[in-house]
Design a protein around this nucleic acid. Structure first.
Lengths: 135, 135
DNA sequence: CTTGCATATAGACAACCATCGATATTCTCT
DNA sequence: AGAGAATATCGATGGTTGTCTATATGCAAG
C-alpha cells in the first residue's frame, strides 16, 4: 500500500530505459475506408471494449500521469476508489487487449501504456484514411 | 426492403447537399494528458461503448461505403445478417452517442456518419495531445 | 380511409460484465 | 523456513446488453 522509497529506488536501479519501440500488432483497417469483415470488426471491437469503461479510462490516464508514466497496482487502488481485486481485473483486461504492458520488478508489477494499440485504434477511426500504420 | 428507383430519386430531390459542418459536441480531454475525472471518463466511455460492438462497427463501415455515404435501415439489414429490429437498435445506439446523424426523407430514414464524435474520440486517444478540437 | 412498406418499440431471454470479499500465489527480507 | 507485502484468482451477485419475435407507429399512394 505504501511504498518504501529505498526499495523503490533499488528496484529501479536495473530498469531498462522505457522501451518505445513496440511489437505494433495492429488490429484492423480504417473503418471508414471499406466495409469491415466480421473478423476485423470483432478484433477492433475487442480493443474498443477494453477502453469503453470509465474505470479503465481513468486507470490509463492515471498511469500516463505518473512521473515515469508507469504505475503498480498498489498506487492505483486508492485514487481510483475501487478494491484491489477490481483494479487488478481492469489492468488485466487492458493488458489482454494490448493497451498496457506489464513488467515485474521486485515485489511489484508495473504497468505502462503500450502506445501501438491506441495508435491502431486512432488509425482505424481516421476519417482521412491515411493508412499510416499499415501492412 | 427493395427500393423503387423513381421514389428514391424523387425523395432525394430536395435533399440538402451533405452538411459537413457539425455541432462538434466534444466529450472530453485527451486521456494521456491528465487524469480524467469520473464525469469525463463516463462521457468518453459512453461513446466508446457505442463503438465497441462488431455489428455497430460494421454498420458504420457499411454506411461510409455507400455511394452517398448514407444508408437507410432497409439497406443494412441484409448485408449485416441481423433482424430489422436489431439493426434499428444498433443505429439508435450510435445515434444516441452522436456517432450517426439521421434524416427522414419520405418513407425512409437515412443515417450518415457525424464526423465530429469520431474525431473527438481520436483526439481523446491522441498520445501527442495536440488539443486540436478544443473548448 | 385503407393498404403497404419502413421503422421503431415492447417484452423476453441468455450471455456477459463490473464489483466485491475471501483466498491463493509470488516475491523479498530476516 | 517463515513472516509480510503485492498481486492474482475464485465464486457470487446484481446490472447491463445483444438478440429475437410480435406489435405499434409513421409515411405515401390509390
Amino acid at each position: 500500500m505504501r511504498i518504501d522509497i529505498r526499495q523503490y529506488i533499488w528496484h529501479n536501479w536495473r530498469m531498462p530505459s522505457t522501451p518505445d519501440v513496440l511489437p505494433s500488432s495492429v488490429c484492423c483497417t480504417p473503418v471508414l475506408e471499406a466495409p469491415l469483415s466480421e473478423t476485423e470488426a470483432r478484433g477492433l471491437a475487442h480493443v474498443l471494449k477494453a477502453l469503453a469503461d470509465p474505470a479503465r479510462l481513468r486507470l490509463i490516464s492515471l498511469i500516463a500521469a505518473q512521473p515515469r508514466a508507469e504505475a503498480c497496482n498498489c498506487e492505483l487502488v486508492e485514487p481510483l476508489g475501487l478494491s484491489q481485486p477490481t483494479v487488478s481485473h481492469h489492468l488485466r483486461v487492458l493488458h489482454d487487449a494490448g493497451v498496457l504492458e506489464r513488467e515485474r520488478r521486485g515485489q511489484w508489477i508495473f504497468y505502462r501504456i503500450a502506445g501501438s494499440q491506441l495508435e491502431a485504434v486512432r488509425v482505424a477511426l481516421d476519417p482521412h484514411a491515411l493508412t499510416t500504420v499499415t501492412s
